[in-house]
Design a protein around this nucleic acid. Structure first.
Lengths: 348, 348
DNA sequence: GGTTACATTTAGATCGTTCTAATCACAGCG
DNA sequence: CGCTGTGATTAGAACGATCTAAATGTAACC
């Protein structure tokens, strides 16, 4: 047993070539399974590869071939289960296609986003899947990534406008339809005084979700009082904090459509603290259907976005773009589905 | 405004050099902030870099310098919030150090783990942070990564033994102490008939956690019936399924120490389905303190492992190893802390 | 034998950086 | 005037792969 697990020096094509008396080029052909090489030499080379414990240097190959075998994935916050699931889906699908995922997270800060993007782009990813931070501007992002690397925007639009030469693809959720469905559901259950709670209006997804709510309310002939829109950061803690403002604004509300599940869970927490019982005397809906939604007390009525499937889809879209760099940019809108659970009780 | 955002050709050092009449070497020195270059030429070069929209090619630099600026992170399952938080911590700390994270996930399958590792290692990471899949063997992992890339094992031991030349670092949780604390807590509350539920005994973390439980039981003079150990996959659904076996094995149990939070949440679900009320007539403890633990009904008594901090720590350990390749391998055991919530009620 | 065809192999340039060892310009000094 | 020291710059070889174009060997055919 003399497998040469040389700890010190890196094994290259030259070592293999020397080791079995062929040229570097031949070894390279063997590695790539070319039909040009003779059966017999192929076997000899493959033995030698194993014997010396060769590991392929994809970076060198990519340099020469001017290709890339990685995709960068930039998300706001991995701690958010929606993005964690999304990332898992992206990584799964990229892995199956032989690509590797370069991870970056921005913590919802557009300045960190800029830094993360500039760093990632230096590693030469073939493309970038970006879920923009709140308030992220098109021109800043473009400056960070340059015009050469294709970008797939997920979940949110960028602020400002892109120059026409940057044709970026989009994968968006059907935000407006989602909150419309949720609002219609609450109206059907008998609610009339319904708030829209959480999120910041400078994020496009928030505006779209508000629009869906507004659309359903108008269609039902219900006027919206200004106090029925309360903003918050899209996190549990900030939503719990903002509950105070919601209840103070109008004590007669019977339901709220929330920006997302994190906000909805925070609202339920806040309601409890103010002596209200979500699912009993106050109806709540979320958005995303994260794993916690079905576990909360009461279980949360929400919109299922299937984040892992979205991740796979995002991966496939960016890979398709790599194959067709010139195809014109497209926008895919993924459907969402209303999942009715106990938090959307009828009014008392 | 003539910033040359050339969409077609990649800008290299040569382009910059030609663009301002200096040599490639000088531009390279400017990029790396060398004190050798003249103030005035530096300014000229920097202008040109901006003007042409140059982006650094780190892969080429790494090839020449035989260095790496990435670390691979291989985790069982990103959908599990414990690992998602861990990954977030790793990525944060690596990013701050100027490294990029190569992501891979194994879905608890050791064959996928092998494939993922072989693929990642070809991209030449400086090191690998690996949370092994259940039943993953030392020799298989070594075969996949080779002996050149340093590895940091997180959370679990590998099966089998490593050859002595592979000196791998470890970051482990204080599993045994954790379940000992949880068990002592239940005993102090008055429980005597306590099960250990979930996990598979071929994972080292599971064995360690069982050992902590056993230790506390023995110290209290309590004998453990064979029916008090029921295994399950470390997921919510499988734990819910296995609840049946636990209750059928001994109907007089009053409490269970669970392998982790996912299992504990599944058990609570299963208990409800069998007409028992966790936190009222059956006490449950978990392990990990994932975000859902405080939200479940009842809130879960568990062991806080601070996964994000562990992630940062893992990143720091592997970076330290890069700086000191020859230092001898070490094992760090991270402390855990008991968080008492309502699921660990006293017996009726 | 000479020509062609085919299968296999290979030398050498190349990708975009960095590094080593010069080289160059210029001032100061004896 | 030649020598040396210093600051600034650079030519050219690497890094580990791939690719082009050409070379080699062998067999077949006229």
């Amino acid at each position: 047993m003399e497998s040469q697990t040389s700890v010190d020096r890196k094994i290259t094509l030259n070592d293999i070539a020397a080791g079995c008396g062929v040229s570097r080029a031949t070894v390279s052909l063997v590695l790539r399974g070319s039909p040009l090489v003779n059966k017999h030499t192929r076997a000899r080379v493959e033995d030698e590869l194993r014997r010396q414990g060769y590991v392929y240097n994809r970076a060198a190959a990519n340099l020469r071939r001017r290709t890339s075998s990685s995709i960068a994935l930039v998300v706001n916050e991995l701690g958010n289960p929606f993005f964690a699931e999304f990332a898992a889906g992206v990584d799964e699908a990229l892995g199956e296609a032989g690509f590797v995922t370069l991870l970056g997270s921005t913590g919802e800060s557009s300045s960190r986003e800029h830094a993360v993007l500039s760093s990632l782009v230096e590693h030469g990813p073939g493309g970038i899947i970006l879920s923009p931070a709140e308030g992220s501007e098109a021109r800043d992002v473009l400056a960070a990534v340059g015009a050469r690397t294709p970008v797939l925007l997920f979940n949110r639009e960028l602020g400002g406008t892109l120059p026409e030469y940057a044709h970026w693809d989009r994968l968006m959720l059907d935000n407006q339809r989602g909150t419309r469905l949720a609002t219609e559901h609450l109206i059907a259950r008998g609610h009339r005084r319904i708030a829209f709670f959480g999120g910041h209006d400078d994020s496009s997804s928030s505006r779209e979700r508000y629009a869906g709510y507004e659309q359903a309310m108008q269609a039902a002939g219900l006027a919206i009082a200004p106090a029925w829109r309360v903003e918050s950061a899209p996190t549990r803690v900030d939503a719990a904090r903002a509950t105070q403002a919601l209840l103070a604004g109008d004590a007669t509300l019977t339901a709220a459509v929330c920006y997302n599940d994190a906000v909805a869970l925070g609202l339920m927490l806040g309601l409890n603290q103010h002596g209200r019982q979500p699912g009993r005397d106050f109806a709540v809906t979320g958005f995303d259907d994260i794993a916690e939604a079905s576990l909360s007390m009461p279980p949360l009525t929400t919109l299922s976005t299937a984040p892992r499937a979205r991740g796979r889809q995002a991966a496939e879209l960016i890979l398709a773009r790599l194959r067709q760099p010139q195809a014109k940019a497209g926008t895919v809108v993924a459907p969402v589905e209303l999942v009715v659970r106990e938090s959307s009780c009828p009014p008392l």
